[in-house]
């Protein structure tokens, strides 16, 4: 019985190392970074307004890049993809690529239709 308990502990122990560094400090650091990025995002949403008056496309690029960075941090560290099997990364990335392509095609198609006749539908 004692041997069994020991075996069970051995089974559980490597899990922590192989799966993810369960480091509370890292988790909190990631949260602080995510919080700061969110604050920067709110600030960046005013970039195309006075007194900064940057081009709207610059603002959109900055905001999308910041959101992508936030997403990447959540997926890598909170969802542990950085430390987990690459198959899970492949599964998730496949969905993201399909979704991104779909969104691009969707936006281009409707943008093209709108350019033809003004109103769509």
């Amino acid at each position: 019985m004692a041997n069994q308990t020991s075996s069970q502990a051995e089974v559980a122990a490597p899990h922590h190392d192989a799966h993810a560094p369960s480091n509370v400090r890292v988790y909190i650091q990631i949260f602080v970074v995510l919080f700061v990025i969110t604050m920067v995002e709110v600030f960046a949403s005013y970039l195309d307004e006075p007194p900064i008056n940057l081009e709207t496309w610059i603002e959109i690029t900055v905001l999308v890049a910041l959101a992508a960075l936030k997403g990447l941090l959540v997926v890598m560290f909170y969802m542990h993809l950085r430390f987990d099997s690459r198959w899970f990364t492949t599964l998730f990335t496949t969905g993201i690529i399909i979704a991104t392509l779909m969104a691009i095609v969707f936006l281009l198609l409707w943008g093209y239709k709108a350019s033809l006749g003004g109103l769509v539908l």
Partner: peptide, 20 residues
Amino acid sequence: WTFISSEAIFFTALISTYLV
């Protein structure tokens, strides 16, 4: 993970619809 992947496509469709 397969479910999450499909959900990413689902929500992208909803967000894209809003945008277009």
